[in-house]
Design a binder for these strands. Structure first.
Lengths: 241, 241
DNA sequence: GAGTGGTCTAGACCACTTG
DNA sequence: AAGTGGTCTAGACCACTCC
């Protein structure tokens, strides 16, 4: 049933197993998962241990609890957590449908910064992707994405449709790697030639730069991403705890 | 011992009581608080209930746990949570000492936006403060801060030294109101005359605008704040969950 | 009323830190 | 060895939802 490191606490093993089942599609978005009592007998632990596991999944936004009704898989659109740029325009209400287009995907030698952020060894290789996020044909964001080739190597040969529109669900589904949290760093700068070209704006335009390190439950970095978007139409919303 | 709403779960009453004790100075920053077993007998509840209360204080960053040593009041500098703008400069390492200067403090009629964000009634009054955050004489941030006059009225007559350098600890100490989380929204715009003047920059400079709604445990908004800083030296770091 | 999640108990045993 | 927080148990009872 569980093949995780037995040195980890049971509630963490169970948390990861439930997350993996959801990623494998055993429980689908919007559906109710097994009840606490069922899970308790499935895993052979007390109900309190199950609750502890679910607590973390709920705070990760993977599962939603409804008192008296059950526990439900959240639609995996990440709208409340790790995708929340560009509510766009003054209306402020409409949420973006995250169309994305991967421009390139290749094995590459990581810079020292990328090596540090992904915690790669001196010999490790990396995967580099350039991706555009668009809405209604308009380019909103240009992203440079770095992954460890050791962890995500097969991504180079996968059908591109398996990587759209969102990458984090793809990491879960195909590699069992769950992004639990991320560190982000925002600055404002002027666009260089590559960024300006992809954003369809003049070089030297004012752009927002977002660096994001995506991290799993074990505190290991999964992805390093640098995104750029035009400053004058940029909105960034976040809940700070 | 506890005078909170008895309809609330015990662990929430205990959480708030412990937080209030810390705010009153019964346990000081860096000190160990009572052990779980002691708290359990103080409050007359099982140790699991104490743990539940402490869980929330720990995730709020009020208390830090150390396995085998005890539980400690975190230094209340908010450096890891709600004050983390402007790590400033390319060094990226030095953290800012948050000098602050309150320029004005008065009763004012809130706009509809402020009324909405503070959830004020149509007749309620508000307090408006303008504050500068500086480092080494240089102005980094210009803040416009709004509070409910009903909740924070006495702040108008307090010695200004009681409100520096940080406001959130002052809210805790003098009003027992704890900021549990905040919603922030960042945009980039050009400075108007007031902002440019306070930031000692030409009007029309590119500035970052941060709107922040600070919220307590009961999900009630405590403060609405709009901050501006020069875009070219702005760094914003956040942990996203 | 049956079934669900939410709170709370009163322990047990383990892992870590300090003397 | 003593004391601390961390994990886990096997229940009890409550609050909410749905039939």
């Amino acid at each position: 049933m569980i093949k995780a490191d037995p040195r980890l606490p049971r509630y963490q093993q169970i948390r990861d197993d439930i997350a993996a089942r959801i990623a494998r599609g055993e429980w689908k978005a919007g559906e109710a998962i097994a009840t606490e009592a069922e899970l308790s007998s499935i895993y052979g632990v007390a109900i309190g241990t199950i609750r502890r596991a679910i607590d973390e999944l709920a705070s990760d936004g993977v599962i939603e609890r409804a008192h008296g009704r059950g526990m439900f898989v959240r639609r995996a659109d990440f709208s409340t957590s790790l995708f929340r740029f560009f509510r766009l325009g003054s209306s402020g209400e409409r949420s973006i449908s995250p169309d994305s287009r991967i421009l390139s995907r290749s094995l590459a030698t990581p810079s020292d910064i990328v090596r540090d952020r992904l915690r790669l060894g001196p010999e490790d290789n990396a995967i580099r992707m350039i991706r555009l996020r668009t809405d209604g044909g308009k380019v909103l964001l240009r992203e440079e994405i770095w992954l460890s080739a050791t962890l995500f190597g097969p991504i180079l040969d996968m059908d591109i449709a398996m990587l759209t529109p969102l990458l984090y669900p793809a990491y879960e589904r195909h590699f069992g790697r769950i992004v639990a949290r991320a560190k982000e760093r925002l600055t404002v700068e002027t666009a260089d030639a590559n960024v300006a070209c992809d954003l369809e704006a003049p070089a030297g335009s004012s752009v927002v730069r977002i660096e994001r390190q995506a991290i799993d439950h074990a505190d290991h970095p999964l992805e390093w991403r640098t995104s750029h978007g035009l400053a004058d139409q940029f909105v960034y919303e976040v809940d700070v705890h």
